[in-house]
Amino acid sequence: MDSGLNFIDLILKASFLVQLVMLTLVALSVLSWAIIIQRRKILSNALANAKKFESRFWSGVDLSKLYNEISARGTQSEGIEAIFTSGFKEFARAKRNNLSAAGLGIDGPHRAMRVALSREVEKLENSLSFLATIGSISPYIGLFGTVWGIMNAFIALGEVKQATLQMVAPGIAEALIATAMGLFAAIPAVIAYNRFATKMEKIESYYGNFMEEFANILHRQALTQEVKSHVPA
């Protein structure tokens, strides 16, 4: 027995504008899933690498040795390593220039690490705003297709003398598919964005705490160095 309505047929028989809306929503859905998969991997790796580096950092390794190990890789450091290298590099530069403890221990390295922190967070947040946009606009795009499809269905209904539900049902059904596709594209994007935003806050807090702790270590080293420099031989 023929049910009378087929999902594929409804899409193929829809008006050009409704088909264009559906195609747009499919493209947005595919793009959002690509972003979700990419960001999930990047954020998970960032947090795992941060924990791995911090474990190495607090193991008692010499900071100069750790800095040289990172620099010797020949690749640009990322994440928490970038914060460490920017701070230590500025500390070493200030040390060579014999700056005071105030400039040497906290101000210069702290500013350098804050800039590095901002850059790393910006990298991790890349594409998240677009994911939020997809979650926001997809239902409205689908709703537009629905309104247009229903409007066409009722216009066609007004052109016949005797209207039946069988005549208007396909037009309304194809219009409602656009709304369903809009929700299909929006819901995963919204859920993923909220989860990624929470993880981003955790990572940023992790980076920020390390930056402050490392700044305190550099400050103590600078004070120790200044005291030694004032001690008579």
Rank of each mutant, 00 (worst) to 15 (best):
D2F: 09
G4V: 10
N6D: 15
F7V: 14
I8E: 10
I8V: 15
I11A: 06
K13N: 15
V18N: 02
L20A: 15
L20V: 15
M22C: 10
M22F: 06
T24L: 13
S29Q: 08
V30Y: 04
S32Y: 01
S32G: 07
W33Y: 13
I35L: 10
I36W: 04
R39V: 07
R40L: 14
I42W: 02
L43M: 15
N45F: 07
N45E: 12
L47C: 04
L47T: 04
L47K: 06
A48V: 14
N49M: 08
K51W: 03
K52H: 12
K52T: 12
F53K: 04
F53N: 03
F57N: 01
W58R: 10
G60C: 10
N68K: 12
E69W: 06
I70V: 14
A72I: 08
G74H: 09
S77G: 05
S77H: 01
G79P: 06
I80H: 02
I83E: 00
S86I: 02
G87Y: 00
F88I: 13
K89R: 14
N97E: 15
L99K: 12
S100W: 05
L104S: 04
D107E: 15
G108Q: 11
H110N: 15
H110K: 14
R111P: 00
A112K: 02
M113K: 01
V115N: 09
A116P: 00
L117Y: 02
E120C: 02
K123I: 07
S129V: 13
L131W: 03
I134N: 01
I134K: 01
S136M: 14
P139S: 05
Y140D: 08
I141K: 02
I150W: 01
F154Y: 12
F154I: 10
L157Y: 03
L157F: 09
V160H: 05
Q162H: 13
Q162W: 00
Q162M: 09
Q166Y: 06
Q166K: 12
P170K: 06
G171M: 05
G171F: 00
E174F: 02
I177C: 08
A178H: 02
G182P: 01
A185Y: 02
A186K: 01
I187M: 10
P188S: 08
Y193L: 06
N194M: 04
K199L: 15
K199C: 11
M200S: 06
E201C: 08
K202H: 10
K202V: 14
K202Q: 10
E204L: 08
Y206H: 12
G208S: 15
F210C: 03
F210V: 07
E213H: 09
L218I: 12
H219M: 13
L223D: 04
L223R: 07
Q225G: 00
V227E: 13
V227M: 11
K228I: 11
S229I: 06
H230P: 00
